[in-house]
Design a protein around this nucleic acid. Sequence first.
DNA 1: TGACTAGTTTATAATGGTTCTAAATAGCTG
DNA 2: CAGCTATTTAGAACCATTATAAACTAGTCA
Lengths: 132, 132
Amino acid sequence: MKYIEKLRNSGLRPTKQRLQICEVLFNTERTFHFTINELEQKIKDKIDNKISLATIYNTVHAFEKKGYLKQIPVNSNQTYFDTNITDHHHFYNLKDGKLIDLENSDVGPINIKRKIDGKKIKSIEVLVKLED
Amino acid sequence: MKYIEKLRNSGLRPTKQRLQICEVLFNTERTFHFTINELEQKIKDKIDNKISLATIYNTVHAFEKKGYLKQIPVNSNQTYFDTNITDHHHFYNLKDGKLIDLENSDVGPINIKRKIDGKKIKSIEVLVKLED
DNA sequence: TGACTAGTTTATAATGGTTCTAAATAGCTG
DNA sequence: CAGCTATTTAGAACCATTATAAACTAGTCA
Ligand SMILES: [Mn+2]
Ligand SMILES: [Mn+2]
Ligand SMILES: [Zn+2]
Ligand SMILES: [Zn+2]
């Protein structure tokens, strides 16, 4: 399978559960945004056996640490993740809590003029809140 | 007192608790960022009587709704608020979870080229994550 | 192939920030 | 002051997330 090597190279054992979660997350036409609850539902829909919620959390965190997923900063009681790990930004629809990708080309280049010494910039993320 | 009228004009009764919270939040040299826990501590330090945690939550939400406070989108288990309600951006120090203001002049002007129809932009917020 | 080991999964409990509840209190108006 | 409504409060409830610890499994090597 295509994900076995990817996992092994990351130092993660290619377990049945992780491979199935890879299918749901990465074997898709498009990238997408999700909360753990939404992912849990998607997994239930696409897979016959059960994967425990703890494993879903564990796996998402493992993948995030390896850089296969990103967390998106929004104000919500749930954590949002993104399978699109390129540098990009987001519209956040306050009405329904859905995110929409904003490519870098949709936002001008962002040049942070101020420096904090001893610190490096890890990421620059723009969140554009939308209302009706 | 200076906050009585502000509260009345907002349709909020100027209760003892709200006035005291106003003192802590707004009677300061500089604006600041806080979580509810940090605010609770600040209130304990500056005020003799007790204000219940429920009232702190109620008041912060009431003030946010009136536009006297802003919520800042970050990935944290706690909600961050800001007494600086001008349009501005943030550095987020991943090491200690502290926020630093980035003025609009520290970030170039941001021009969102894409439109979502039926939707208006409510805010544009840039979060710059810092690591060592 | 059969141990051995470390990594992983799992059900379930615990945690902790936030919200809810409903009774007591306090501000406002007449 | 009386009456009305908003507000405060202690404590319970909620719920996303994390911790626990026992069962299981992938990888290794004899
Ligand atoms: Mn979630
Ligand atoms: Mn908080
Ligand atoms: Zn995205
Ligand atoms: Zn700020």
